[in-house]
């Protein structure tokens, strides 16, 4: 394996280990974000944000997990967004 790749890979592992050990600090500004705000910000990162009525509540749980994998959402983000979508869902 190339030396540069080993250096990069090791550096990334160290960074993530430190972050994980420190409990993933988030600022109050980020922690206070509502589900609606996170829905608008995170969905639109890649595509148009789907309206709450696009899926039923059970399917929102599944879609949320899919986005956790595909778009690297944190569990906290997913939970807040799904709670918001369910609370305004008419289906």
């Amino acid at each position: 394996m190339k030396k540069s790749i080993i250096i990069i890979f090791t550096s990334l592992l160290v960074v993530f280990s430190v972050i994980l050990m420190n409990g993933c600090y988030e600022s109050k500004k980020v922690a206070d974000k509502s589900g609606a705000q996170l829905w608008a910000e995170n969905c639109n990162r890649c595509h148009n944000a789907p309206a709450p009525g696009e899926f039923n509540n059970a399917n929102w749980d599944i879609v949320g997990t899919h986005m956790q994998v595909r778009a690297n959402f944190t569990k906290t983000e997913v939970d807040k967004v799904i709670t918001f979508l369910k609370s305004t869902n008419t289906n």
Partner: peptide
Amino acid sequence: LGGMPVGNMKLNY
């Protein structure tokens, strides 16, 4: 894989 907050920022890997 995953994502994590770091202050006002976010990292994903």
